[in-house]
Amino acid sequence: MKSKRHLVSLAALSAVAVLSLSACAGGGSTGGSTNASGNYNISFIQGVAGDEFYISMQCGAEAEAKKLGVTLNTQGPAKFDPTLQKPIVDSVVASNPSAILVAPTDVTAMQAPLKAAASAGIKVVLVDTTVDDPSFATASIASDNTGGGKSAFDAIKQLNPNGGKVLIMATDPGISTTDARIAGFEESIKADSSFNYIGVQYSHNDPAEAARLMTAALAKDPDIVGVFATNTFAAEGTATGVRQAGKQDTVKIAGFDAGPAQVQDLRDGTISALVAQQPALIGADGVDAAVAALKGETVTKNTQTGFQVLTLENIDTTGKDYVYKSSC
């Protein structure tokens, strides 16, 4: 990005790397298809195809599957939409895999189809997102999203020590991860009277819509000082809207996720901080959980992986390994 004239030191934040907890896996009867040698067939259903977060998760899952000698097949919907993901889940269940790794696109809409998969004897491992009642799942593996939302507020606060108006640019309600990030951010900002929280805008996971909403928000409240963008597409669109309004020097954006476009916005000065997850680790842990469950081993039911706050100060050093991949 451009020079970071207004970037207050965030070195302390970059130390907020929540070390990932190791994920064992297991529990329950073996089910689904295997060949004679025990080569389990695992299906990974992404939240959306083509997103660097899920590509990075796929890379981690593929590497772990290769190491363990199991087969991994990956597919995902064109949009983060339960009406597009459910037919994929139904088709995968009909093929009777040994296990499914899945990032549910809605906490309610994906409950029944995934529970049906588990009832059919398929091990279901929830990765990244979850559902209303995940008790049927073998394991759930995700980032500390609430903590990440709190760290995003800390970043904005350090950049705006005098407070001011702040909003959130999100995707859609009903997505477990972004709902948790919003909750963490809101908990922190509501405890600080120097900030005026003006609410959440929902961009439907569409960068163009996020840009439009951001432009409109700045026209209504030109004195906005900070924005928390809750995922890759929200951050991309928010950055575009801020650039279009010529507000790069006054509006500080803390984004969640660290795809190549977001990192470039960080380098260019449009985004001030990125909360980067560990999607490759989530994918690897998901495969470990599925295989251990199929072998009848003990499972860690819920695992939280860590995150790292990326800034210009650490993007080329301790933060470089947290940048998401566009291909494996």
Rank of each mutant, 00 (worst) to 15 (best):
M1C: 06
R5F: 10
L7M: 13
L7A: 14
S9Q: 09
S14E: 15
V18H: 08
V18I: 09
S22M: 13
G27P: 12
G28M: 10
S29T: 13
G31L: 07
A36I: 14
S37H: 01
Y40A: 14
N41Q: 14
S43R: 01
I45L: 09
G47H: 07
G47T: 07
E52P: 15
F53Q: 02
F53G: 02
Y54Q: 03
Y54K: 01
S56T: 13
S56R: 01
A61D: 00
A63T: 13
V70L: 13
V70K: 06
G76R: 05
K79N: 11
D81G: 02
P82I: 00
Q85H: 04
I88Q: 01
I88G: 02
V93F: 00
A94C: 05
N96F: 07
S98W: 02
I100T: 09
A103R: 10
D106V: 08
D106E: 09
V107D: 13
A109K: 07
A117H: 08
I122H: 12
K123S: 08
V124R: 09
V125L: 05
V125M: 03
V127R: 06
D128E: 09
T129C: 07
F136I: 05
I141F: 05
T146S: 11
T146Q: 13
G147N: 13
G148P: 06
K150C: 01
K150T: 11
A152S: 02
D154Y: 09
A155D: 08
A155S: 13
K157F: 02
L159V: 00
V166M: 08
L167W: 12
A170V: 10
T171C: 09
D172H: 13
G174P: 02
I175Y: 05
D179E: 06
R181D: 08
E186T: 15
E186S: 13
S188C: 05
D192H: 09
D192C: 07
Y197Q: 07
I198S: 04
I198E: 02
S203A: 15
P207R: 04
A210T: 00
A211H: 04
M214V: 13
M214D: 01
A217T: 02
L218S: 05
A219V: 06
V227K: 03
T230Q: 02
T232V: 00
T238F: 00
T238P: 00
V242W: 12
R243T: 07
A245T: 03
G246A: 03
G246I: 04
D249N: 14
D257H: 02
A258D: 04
G259L: 00
Q262A: 02
L266E: 11
R267D: 11
A273R: 04
Q278S: 06
A280G: 01
D288V: 10
V291K: 11
G296A: 14
T303F: 00
Q304N: 11
G306I: 10
Q308G: 03
T311M: 05
T311W: 01
L312A: 11
E313F: 11
E313P: 05
N314H: 04
I315C: 05
D316E: 14
T317M: 02
G319R: 02
G319N: 01
G319V: 11
D321M: 12
K325Y: 04
S326F: 03
S327T: 15
